[in-house]
Structure formats: C-alpha cells, structure tokens
Simulated scan of single mutants.
Amino acid sequence: MYIPAHFAAQPDAVEALFAAPGAANLITMTDGGLLATLLPFVYEPSAGEHGALHAHMARNNPQAATPATGEALAIIQGPDAYVSPSWYASKAEHGRVVPTWNYSTAHVYGQLVVHDDAGWLARHVRRLTDRHEESREHPWSVDDAPEKFISGQLRAIMGIELLITRIEAKEKQSQNRSAEDAAGVAAGLRAGGQEAAAATVERVRRG
C-alpha cells in the first residue's frame, strides 16, 4: 500500500479498525487466479504472533475449498467520505483547492487456515453474533433458534482463520490540511449526516 508518512495509521487507529464490528474483503491467490469474498470477522489477539481474523464462509464457496498460494490478504475499511473543497477555509483565501476522499483502511496479510470443526464454528458464530447483538434492546441469541436448525446451518459453512503476518494501515483524514480546513471538513461531514467520518477527522487532528 502507498502510505505517505503523514497518512500512516497509528497503532490505536489499527486497534479501532479491528475492534469495530464490520466485514473485510478476503482475497486469496490460487492456481486458478484471484478469489475474493466479503466476510464479517472477529479479531482474536491471542492467536499466533500478531493475532488473527476469524470468519466463516459458505461451504459451497470455491474460496473455502481452493488452497491459497502464499499470503492471503484481508482489506478492512473504516470511515470514508467524499470531501468537498467548499468546506475548506482556504477556498475563500486563494481558491487553490480540489475535491478529495478521506478514508481509513488496513491491509492485513497472513496465512489462511480453514476450520471444518463443528466446535470451532459454533464458538465463532456465537462470538460474532453476540458482538453485533449486544447493543440491541432485545439481543438475539443463537439459543433462540432450534438446535437442529443451527446444527444444519453450521454444516453449511467453513471456518476461516487468517493468522496475521503483517499489517499495512493508512488514515487519510485531512492531515495535510490546515487546522481550519480540517475543522471545515468535520463540520461539512457532520452536516451531511456522516458522524463517524467527522469524528475520525477530529480524532486524527487531536493526535
């Protein structure tokens, strides 16, 4: 990934990307070419030297059954948004401004392990479900569904573990603009209902 020094993500930003409930694009190179699938994931810091991403995919997905060649890559995307030059204070000063795009992302490389164990899958699905349900007023639990039905659903998926070998992360959040321009970007994003993107610009500016 191309990462200018002023856009390099700090460790806390990478941790935030891992901690936020979301999905990642898993990309693998195979003898038949590139394969990719968008997968909800859970970060497991205790696995391997650098942690692991745990996910699952349909058993019928060719990516689950096709051996990966070399490293696999998971792309995690954080808040991103179009930035209008009209939000910059410097637009009124000299007009030498253009549109851009703010974003946070991590490219997570590692060795792919496929799990076909009912116990591993059951623990993973419960953990992933609880992660997304815990903030709801009436959270759904795996135990709310019939056991036989859940067993059948588990038989239809494969566990995916990406044992992390290296991470490249970038936050392009108006660091190359003045404080006044960055404040204008945050205000413009917030006015457009993009609270997460606005808050990220402010967090990065605070350092």
Rank of each mutant, 00 (worst) to 15 (best):
I75F: 01
N61W: 00
A52D: 06
E49N: 08
L53C: 04
A52H: 02
I75S: 01
N61K: 00
E44K: 12
G51V: 02
H54S: 10
P62E: 06
A72M: 10
P67V: 10
P67C: 12
V42H: 11
A74W: 11
A58G: 14
A74M: 14
A68Q: 07
R59C: 10
A68S: 14
A68C: 10
G51Q: 06
L53Q: 05
Y43T: 00
G70R: 12
M57A: 13
A55V: 07
A72E: 13
E49K: 10
Y43K: 02
A74R: 06
E49G: 04
V42I: 13
Y43P: 02
G48R: 02
H54C: 13
M57Y: 06
L53A: 02
T69G: 09
A64V: 04
A58T: 10
A68D: 04
A74F: 10
G51C: 05
E44I: 04
T69V: 15
N60M: 02
I75M: 09
H54T: 11
H54N: 13
Q63C: 04
Y43E: 01
H50M: 07
V42T: 12
N60G: 01
H56W: 05
N61D: 13
A58I: 08
H56I: 03
H56S: 05
G51S: 03
H54A: 12
G48F: 04
E49D: 14
P67D: 11
A52Q: 04
A68G: 08
H56P: 06
Q77M: 12
T69S: 13
Y43S: 02
R59D: 15
L53G: 05
Q63K: 03
A55P: 07
P45C: 01
R59I: 11
P67S: 12
A65G: 06
H50C: 03
Q77H: 14
A65L: 11
T66I: 07
G48W: 09
G78M: 09
L73N: 07
L73Q: 05
L73F: 06
H56E: 05
S46L: 12
T69M: 14
P45S: 01
H50F: 12
P67I: 09
A47L: 13
G48T: 03
A65F: 00
A55M: 15
A52R: 03
